[in-house]
Amino acid sequence: MSPPPVTVTKEKVLDAALQIVREAGYAALTARAVAARLGCSVAPIYRVCGSMEQLATEVLEKIRQLLAGYTARSYTAMPFRNAGVGMVLFARDEPNLYLALFGERHHFKGVIQEFCAAMAATVAEDPTFAPLGAAARQELLEEMWTYSHGLAMFVVTGMVADVSEAAINRRMGRIGFAVITAAFGGDTGWACGGPDCAGEEMGGGKTT
C-alpha cells in the first residue's frame, strides 16, 4: 500500500527552509534539501514558492523578524542599547541565522535595509537624541552598528569568553556611553537625569 501523499503548504516549506539554514547554514538551502526534509519531490516546493530566490527572500525575512524580536526586548531602560544587546544575543543563540542575514553574500539587501530603518527609527524616536541633527544621529547609528556587528561576529566565531546577557549588556553599555558622548561633542550632560539616568544605563555609572 502506497504511503499517503504529502501535503505541501507554504508554511511547511518556509519552516523546513528555516530549519535547514538554522542547522546547516544558508548555503545548505536548496530545493532538494527542502524536499528531502518534507518527504516530497522538488515540484511542490516550486509550486508553492515560485522560485528558490523567492523562498530565500522569505526565509531571510523570517530571520529578520526573529532578530527584531530580540532587539525589541527590554534589557535596559534604553531602547537604543536594547537593540545592540539584542543583536549580539541573537548571534549567540542563532549563529547560522545571523550569518545568513549579515554574513552571506546574498543580494537581498531590502531585508537588511528594513532592519536598519527600524534601528534608525528607534534613534529618531528616543528623546535622548533629540538635540542631535539627522546626520549626527545617522553617524551615531552607523558607529554603534559597526561595534554591535563586530561583537556579534566575534561571538559567532567563539572568540568571546563570556557571552552571558549580563556581560554583553556591560560591553554595550561601555561603548555606548563613549560613542554617544562623542556624538554630543564630549558633553556627558545627555546622561544626566537622576539615579536611573541614561548615562548609568549606558555604562557611565552603575549598570543593570
Results as ranks from 00 to 15, higher is better:
117 A>W: 04
168 I>E: 05
208 T>D: 12
195 P>R: 13
161 A>G: 11
24 A>E: 15
156 V>C: 10
161 A>R: 15
35 A>Q: 05
128 T>C: 13
91 A>R: 03
139 E>M: 12
44 P>S: 04
21 V>C: 04
84 G>M: 04
119 M>T: 05
81 R>F: 04
100 A>L: 02
27 A>F: 04
197 C>P: 01
34 V>K: 01
102 F>Y: 15
143 E>M: 12
149 H>L: 05
199 G>I: 00
186 G>T: 07
189 G>D: 09
59 V>C: 04
123 V>K: 00
116 C>L: 15
5 P>D: 12
109 K>L: 14
90 F>G: 01
38 L>A: 06
18 L>Q: 08
47 R>S: 12
40 C>H: 03
31 A>H: 02
187 D>V: 08
190 W>Y: 09
77 A>N: 12
45 I>G: 00
178 A>T: 09
66 L>N: 09
72 A>R: 10
57 T>P: 00
174 R>K: 13
8 V>N: 04
113 Q>I: 04
68 A>T: 13
70 Y>N: 02
35 A>L: 07
89 L>K: 02
47 R>D: 11
193 G>D: 11
17 A>S: 13
12 K>T: 03
11 E>V: 11
8 V>S: 01
200 E>K: 11
88 V>C: 08
76 T>Y: 02
160 V>R: 03
106 H>Y: 04
84 G>I: 01
183 A>Q: 02
180 I>G: 00
40 C>K: 03
183 A>S: 13
102 F>A: 02
88 V>D: 01
151 L>T: 07
197 C>G: 15
64 R>N: 10
38 L>K: 03
127 P>S: 07
206 K>S: 15
26 Y>E: 04
98 Y>G: 00
162 D>N: 14
14 L>M: 07
25 G>S: 05
84 G>C: 05
163 V>Y: 00
202 M>Q: 08
162 D>I: 05
132 L>A: 02
99 L>M: 15
105 R>P: 03
102 F>T: 04
201 E>K: 10
